[in-house]
Each structure stands twice: as structure tokens, then as C-alpha cells.
Simulated assay, not measured.
Amino acid sequence: MIGYVYILECADGSYYTGSTKDISKRIRLHQGGLGANYTRRRLPVKLVYLEEFSRIDEAFYREKQIQGWSRKKKEALIEKNYDLLIELSKAYRDLF
């Protein structure tokens, strides 16, 4: 079963990362205030990033990975700035 990971930009400028099997339905739920508690208080939301996976468990794993990222790293992903994404992925200890 296909899975998706997505990033929404909320009305307050924050990002919400989620995963689902049905992206259209999930976006409608978020927009209707029936999605996650986080997005309910920050409507409207806008889809700014989407990845498709062949299995939902892969999308869930990717969701958890992205949720741990900094705002700058998420923005690099959204903007498809892969050079910056690689730079932001380097461990602090590897910079010296």
C-alpha cells in the first residue's frame, strides 16, 4: 500500500510533518479542523512538501526522521536545496 509523508505550513508559519495512506483525505481533514491537535489551532494550513513511498511504514519512518530536523533543514528540503540539506546534515563534531 502506498504511503505519503507531507509537510504543512500552518497559519502561524510553523511546520507540521505527518504521514498517511490517503493524502487528499488527510489534507481535507487538516483544513476542516479534524486533523492533528497541532494544526487545529493553526488553521489554515498549506501543503508545502510531499514524498511518496511504496509502503506506509516507510513513510512513517521518514515522518519521524523529518520531525527531528531543525526548521532550517526542513526548509532546505521544502525548497529542494539539496546542497544546503547536506551541509545541515553534517554533525557538529565533524565541522572541526
Rank of each mutant, 00 (worst) to 15 (best):
G18P: 02
S19I: 02
F60D: 15
G18A: 01
A91M: 15
L43R: 08
Y82S: 09
L95I: 13
I78P: 01
E87M: 13
H30F: 02
A11W: 01
K46Y: 04
G13M: 12
R55F: 15
V5W: 09
K64H: 14
N37A: 12
R55A: 13
L85C: 09
G35L: 03
R62W: 10
L77V: 04
L88M: 10
G3P: 05
T17Q: 06
E79G: 06
K80H: 13
L34M: 10
G33H: 05
K74R: 15
K25Y: 14
Q65I: 12
W69I: 07
S14I: 08
Y49P: 01
H30M: 04
E87F: 14
K73M: 14
I2L: 13
E87G: 12
L95F: 08
L84A: 11
I86K: 14
A36F: 09
Y92E: 14
I23Q: 07
S70A: 11
R71T: 14
I7W: 00
S14W: 02
L84T: 14
G32R: 01
D94G: 03
H30R: 06
I66K: 10
K72H: 07
R26C: 00
K90M: 14
L43V: 05
P44K: 05
C10R: 02
E75C: 06
L47P: 05
I78D: 06
E52T: 13
P44S: 04
V5Y: 08
A76P: 01
S19F: 12
G32L: 02
L95K: 12
G32H: 00
T39K: 00
Q31E: 09
E79M: 13
L85G: 06
T20Y: 07
R41V: 10
K25D: 09
Y82E: 10
D94P: 03
R62V: 00
L34G: 03
G3D: 01
Y16Q: 11
G33M: 03
E79I: 07
I66V: 02
K74G: 01
D22G: 04
N37M: 09
Q67F: 08
Y6F: 06
G18E: 02
R71M: 12
V45I: 04
L47S: 06
E58N: 12
F96Q: 06
A59G: 05
E63K: 13
R55I: 11
L50S: 05
D22R: 11
L8D: 03
S19H: 12
I86R: 15
Q65L: 15
L50Q: 11
T20H: 07
A11N: 10
R26H: 07
G32S: 04
Q31P: 08
K72I: 13
R40D: 04
Y38K: 07
G35N: 02
R42P: 01
L29A: 12
L85M: 13
N81M: 06
L77C: 01
T20Q: 04
A11G: 05
E51Q: 04
I27Y: 10
D94L: 12
A91D: 15
A11H: 09
N37H: 13
Y82H: 09
L50F: 01
H30G: 01
A76S: 08
R93G: 07
F53M: 03
R55G: 03
G18L: 01
S24W: 09
Y4S: 05
E87P: 04
Q31A: 05
D57E: 15
A36K: 12
L43M: 03
Q31M: 07
K72L: 15
W69M: 10
A36D: 14
I78A: 08
L95V: 13
I78H: 05
Y6H: 01
I56D: 08
L50V: 10
